[in-house]
Every structure is written in C-alpha cells, then in structure tokens.
Amino acid sequence: MKQLFFVAVGVVIGFAVAHQVARTPGGARLFAVVDASTKAFTGAVADGYRSRGAELRTDV
C-alpha cells in the first residue's frame, strides 16, 4: 500500500513538472518533438500491422 502511495505521488509530481516545463518555449518545442516522434512511431507500427495482416490474408 505504501508503494502505491509513492507511485501515485510520483505521477502527480511528474504531471506538475511536465505542465510547468510545457509553459516555457523550450519545453513546448521538446513536447512537440516528442509528440511528432510518438505519432511517427505509432503510425509505422499501425502500417506494419496492416501490411502483415494483408500478407496473411493473401497467403491463405
């Protein structure tokens, strides 16, 4: 129970720090880069998933 409390406190502190960092111009740029990278990665994973699904459907 004590560990769960510390995890929850850590998450809250992390969100608060991220919010403060995002208010600065450098922080906003950082989060924009992270967001773009995340979207590119998830897009590549989704494309690969669809491609592999198409391969499996045609091999039957």
Score class of each variant (00 low, 15 high):
1 M>C: 10
1 M>Y: 11
2 K>L: 11
2 K>N: 15
6 F>M: 11
6 F>E: 10
8 A>F: 10
10 G>S: 00
11 V>D: 03
11 V>L: 14
11 V>K: 07
11 V>E: 06
12 V>T: 15
13 I>K: 08
13 I>N: 07
15 F>V: 15
17 V>A: 04
18 A>E: 05
18 A>S: 07
19 H>W: 09
20 Q>S: 12
20 Q>A: 15
21 V>P: 00
21 V>D: 01
24 T>N: 00
26 G>H: 05
26 G>N: 08
26 G>F: 07
27 G>V: 00
27 G>M: 02
29 R>E: 13
30 L>M: 14
31 F>V: 04
31 F>P: 01
31 F>C: 04
31 F>S: 05
31 F>A: 02
32 A>V: 03
37 S>W: 05
39 K>Q: 06
40 A>C: 02
40 A>Y: 00
41 F>L: 00
41 F>D: 00
41 F>W: 03
42 T>E: 02
45 V>I: 15
46 A>D: 15
47 D>H: 09
47 D>N: 08
48 G>L: 11
49 Y>T: 10
50 R>H: 11
51 S>W: 13
52 R>Q: 11
52 R>W: 07
52 R>T: 15
52 R>A: 14
53 G>A: 14
53 G>W: 12
54 A>Y: 10
58 T>N: 13
58 T>F: 10
59 D>M: 15
